[in-house]
Design a protein around this nucleic acid. Sequence first.
DNA 1: CGCCGGATTTAA
DNA 2: TAAATCCGGCGA
Length: 192
Amino acid sequence: MNLLAAPATAARSLLGQLLVRGDVTLRITEVEAYGGPADSASHARHGRTARNAPMWGPPGRAYLYFCYGMHWMLNVVTGPEGEALAVLIRSAEVLTGLDTVLRRRKATQATPTLCAGPGKVAQALGLDRTFDGHDLLAPGGLELRDGPSPERIVAGPRLGIGFATAEDQARPWRFADGDSRAVLQRKALAPT
DNA sequence: CGCCGGATTTAA
DNA sequence: TAAATCCGGCGA
């Protein structure tokens, strides 16, 4: 885990790390880096607002936002305080607490895609606005812990950012565990 | 103050 | 391929 590094490095370092809440442990398998005010795909692109306030705070905090009227998205704030760098957690594997995850996800059985997608990750952890700004490095609530990094990492352009400039859309800031099945759209990813 | 559209998911 | 569903940010 190297949260103070540049966007892409910080994002890569989060692969394999663990998200723990209660009995549930998720292993992060896919992430996307967001580069602050200069990144036209970032929520920080219009400067500091009430919604994106946690992004501007210290690294290791959560930034949660509501999207498409129904999904919560979990980000880990990275970089030095004030730079508004963040990493979106896009997918994960369930290590513990499968029953709890199945209940929250309204699923009946574990599949590789159970937590593949940012909305699914937040739902699996039972997250909502009350976790916005939460310190992920402190005990209690939702925690980010060290786990083994993947052996192979694949990278590609970020998803769902058609509104950004062509240059920012092309940035290969989406990273995934090359050996995990819990990653959608694998074809868009290539070895690093 | 009203409109536009989104870092998505799901089912048809 | 489209509907679900809501709020943030911008322009008027």
